[in-house]
């Protein structure tokens, strides 16, 4: 009896998540060391440059419609002079149990064979459900068709689709770079090497706070860092099982008194 139940459950699970592979070939993971991140915003601009993100202007920014696939959130504690500022870069967490994937009625967002949470622009009908369900608020919507004045459009990356009005988008872990690396690996009949795929944000990060790689490969940097005792994941209580792993920042407890007074 329990066997049948198990089988039915298994079937249901398969049905519930088509495209959800039981074993990922790669498990792309990003590790972000908050103790290294200094909040310089280089990643934000690098992402803009790589992924054809539009510039929306001051008015639209004031309506909270700026396009940042990666953003750096700042949290400030305490009052002068005991101020503590904390930075955290947040991009799509590529949850393995993603609320957004549940919401989309047309499978425009789904889990692909690399453990990535993928947004298929040309399938999107714009119900906003994924963005509403996303606890990390990382999804951005094309409110209009954004145009670049000439010749700024010459910069647009031909490897990345330019999105039209009415389509949801988000961080892809620079999927176009993963594709190039996999293509190369396939030519040489091997697996993608550690460090071969470097998303734009990771590439530019001056402090080296961001590390990207395949967690299935036990020798990769991310696999090692992911075991750090400082690891945590954002809003872990929601059980979304993100692929982005943060390492805790080392910092004195706020409110602890100035050093000098105790000598």
């Amino acid at each position: 009896m329990s066997k049948i139940v198990k089988k039915v459950k298994e079937r249901l699970r398969d049905f519930r998540r088509p495209g959800y592979y039981k074993e990922f070939e790669y498990n792309w993971t990003m590790v972000i060391d908050l103790d290294k991140c200094n909040g310089c915003e280089a990643c934000v601009v690098a992402c803009h440059a790589e992924n054809n993100l539009p510039i929306v202007g001051k008015d639209e920014c004031s309506k909270s419609r700026a396009f940042n696939w990666i953003r750096i959130e700042r949290y400030v504690e305490g009052e002068f002079p005991n101020v503590k500022v904390k930075f955290i870069p947040i991009m799509c967490q590529h949850c393995n149990s993603a609320p957004c994937e549940l919401g989309c009625p047309v499978y425009a967002t789904y889990h692909n064979q690399d453990g990535l949470n993928v947004q298929v622009y040309n399938r999107c009908v714009g119900t906003f459900t994924c963005a509403t369900y996303c606890p990390y608020d990382v999804r951005r919507f094309n409110w209009f068709t954004y145009k670049w004045p000439e010749p700024l459009d010459q910069q647009l990356n031909p490897d990345v689709t330019v999105r039209e009005m009415g389509v949801m988008e988000k961080c892809t872990f620079c999927i176009q770079r993963i594709r190039v690396a996999k293509d190369r690996a396939k030519d040489e009949n091997r697996k993608v090497r550690d460090g071969e795929v470097v998303p734009a944000c990771v590439q530019s990060c001056p402090t080296g706070a961001l590390v990207f790689g395949d967690r299935n490969d036990p020798k990769s940097r991310v696999a090692k860092l992911a075991k750090s005792p400082r690891r945590f994941r954002l809003l872990e209580g929601l059980n979304t099982d993100p692929s982005v792993i943060y390492l805790k920042r080392v910092m004195k407890k706020s409110g602890s008194k100035k050093h000098g007074e105790h000598g």
Binding site: G19, Q113, V120, N122, I175
Partner: peptide, 11 residues
């Protein structure tokens, strides 16, 4: 392999 996956041809 993965020939019917959206990601294979899109984005």
């Amino acid at each position: 392999k993965n020939g019917r996956d959206c990601w294979t041809c899109h984005i």
